[in-house]
Amino acid sequence: DVEEQIRRLEEVLKKNQPVTWNGTTYTDPNEIKKVIEELRKSM
C-alpha cells in the first residue's frame, strides 16, 4: 500500500534516520522527501 509506505518514510524523516529504499540508503532528508514525492505521483 503506497500510502502506508509514505507514512513510514515520513516517520523515518521525523526521526532523522537513514532509510533504505529499493536497495539504496538515503541519509539526506531532501533525498527522502524526493522518494516520498515520487510515491505520491505514482498513486
Rank of each mutant, 00 (worst) to 15 (best):
S42L: 15
Y26L: 15
T25Y: 14
N22G: 11
S42N: 10
K15N: 15
T20W: 12
K33E: 10
K34F: 10
N16H: 11
N22C: 10
Q17R: 07
W21Q: 02
I6G: 00
E4T: 05
V12R: 13
K41S: 13
K15P: 02
M43F: 09
N16S: 09
K33I: 13
I36M: 04
G23D: 07
I32S: 00
W21P: 02
P18Q: 13
T27C: 03
G23Y: 02
K33D: 04
N22T: 02
S42Y: 13
Q17Y: 10
N16Q: 09
N30Y: 12
I32Y: 01
N22Q: 13
K41L: 14
V12S: 15
I6A: 02
I36K: 00
T20G: 03
K15M: 14
M43E: 06
K41Q: 14
T24R: 08
T25M: 11
D1W: 14
P29Y: 08
D1G: 13
V2T: 10
L13S: 04
N16R: 06
T20Y: 13
E38H: 09
R40Y: 13
E3Y: 12
E3I: 12
T25R: 04
K15D: 11
N22D: 10
R8N: 12
Q17L: 15
I32D: 00
E4W: 08
K33G: 06
V35E: 02
I6Y: 02
I6S: 01
I6E: 01
L13A: 06
K15W: 11
T27M: 07
E10R: 04
L39Y: 03
N16I: 04
E4L: 06
Q17V: 12
R8T: 13
T20C: 09
E4C: 03
E38K: 06
T25L: 15
E4G: 06
R8H: 13
Q5A: 13
R7Y: 06
E38N: 09
L13Y: 07
P18T: 13
V12T: 13
N22E: 12
E4R: 05
V35H: 03
E10S: 04
G23N: 08
T27N: 12
G23M: 02
L13R: 03
E10Y: 05
D1V: 10
T27P: 02
T24S: 08
E10D: 03
K33N: 06
E38T: 07
R40S: 05
Q17W: 11
E37Q: 10
N16P: 06
K41W: 09
S42H: 14
E11M: 08
T27A: 07
P29M: 14
E37N: 06
D1C: 11
V35L: 15
E11F: 04
G23S: 04
V2H: 06
M43L: 15
M43N: 09
E4Q: 07
R40W: 08
L9K: 00
L9A: 02
I36R: 00
I32M: 03
D28Y: 03
E31A: 10
R8S: 08
K41A: 15
M43A: 09
N30P: 03
N30V: 13
V12N: 15
E38W: 12
V19L: 12
E31Q: 08
K33F: 10
K33T: 08
L39V: 03
E4Y: 08
K34S: 09
K41F: 10
P18D: 07
D1N: 13
E10H: 04
D28H: 05
D28L: 03
D28R: 02
V35R: 03
E11Q: 07
S42M: 14
T25K: 05
T24Y: 11
V35F: 09
V2I: 15
K14E: 15
L39Q: 01
R40H: 05
N16W: 14
